[in-house]
Simulated scan of single mutants.
Amino acid sequence: MTTRQHAALVALLSAAAPIAALASERFLGMAPCALCLWQRWPYWAAAAIAVLAAGLRSRALLALAGGAVLVSGAIAGLHVGVEQGWWPSPLASCAAPDVGVAASVDDLLRSLAAKPDKPCDAAAYPIPGLPISLAAMNLAYALALGALALTWAGRGSRQGARA
């Protein structure tokens, strides 16, 4: 495969991840947390960079796209740690609201958001019986796709980078 083909495939696979996440919301009724939403942005950046890499036949841009995918993997790794209770989330919006013990019902109702946020430590398991959360699936996917993109960028194509 050529650099252009590799980059086009990375663009397609990068865009597929956030699209699949949106589909899980719409068709499976899964609510995203703040860290879930953060994991999507590097994929969109990777897709755009990979499209540029394909147009310019640039292995350097392909490597940059692979790096962007790995950023999503790093956020996913952080998210898995939050889900497992290894560390707290760095985002304030990831915590369930805490109004204290002495709060009245009125105080509790005022503290609730119009649309409740899903806490980041509440793992979402899309496949019944399989104890792998969406964040863990994204971690594996991002590591694989990022490594593949970096490998292709470093190796180039058999026909040469200009093919």
Score class of each variant (00 low, 15 high):
77 G>W: 12
50 A>P: 07
71 V>M: 11
98 D>M: 05
69 V>W: 06
86 W>H: 07
106 D>E: 15
56 L>N: 09
34 A>I: 09
143 L>D: 00
35 L>D: 08
119 P>T: 08
110 R>M: 02
1 M>T: 14
108 L>T: 11
91 L>Y: 06
96 A>F: 00
120 C>F: 04
102 A>S: 15
110 R>G: 00
77 G>A: 15
101 V>P: 00
51 V>Y: 06
115 K>I: 15
137 M>F: 08
160 G>S: 11
137 M>W: 11
81 G>N: 03
62 L>E: 06
23 A>G: 09
29 G>C: 07
41 W>G: 10
130 L>P: 00
142 A>N: 13
115 K>W: 10
120 C>Y: 04
20 A>C: 01
9 L>G: 01
20 A>F: 02
4 R>S: 14
103 A>V: 09
16 A>I: 01
37 L>P: 00
18 P>K: 03
141 Y>R: 06
161 A>H: 13
97 P>L: 08
112 L>W: 11
97 P>H: 03
61 L>D: 10
22 L>H: 07
109 L>K: 10
64 L>A: 15
114 A>E: 14
123 A>Y: 02
29 G>I: 09
49 I>K: 03
27 F>K: 02
145 L>C: 05
15 A>R: 06
56 L>H: 13
61 L>Q: 10
58 S>F: 04
99 V>F: 10
72 S>Q: 07
126 P>Y: 05
59 R>L: 03
57 R>I: 03
2 T>L: 09
19 I>P: 00
27 F>G: 01
125 Y>R: 12
25 E>Y: 10
141 Y>P: 02
57 R>N: 12
117 D>L: 15
103 A>P: 05
17 A>D: 05
161 A>Q: 13
107 D>T: 12
120 C>L: 04
149 A>M: 07
153 A>N: 12
86 W>E: 09
135 A>N: 08
61 L>K: 10
40 R>W: 06
58 S>E: 05
26 R>G: 02
161 A>F: 03
75 I>E: 04
76 A>H: 05
34 A>C: 12
66 G>P: 07
160 G>C: 11
153 A>Q: 12
21 A>W: 08
133 S>D: 06
22 L>G: 14
85 G>I: 02
12 L>D: 05
61 L>G: 11
108 L>S: 06
121 D>I: 00
82 V>G: 07
40 R>E: 11
113 A>E: 14
63 A>K: 13
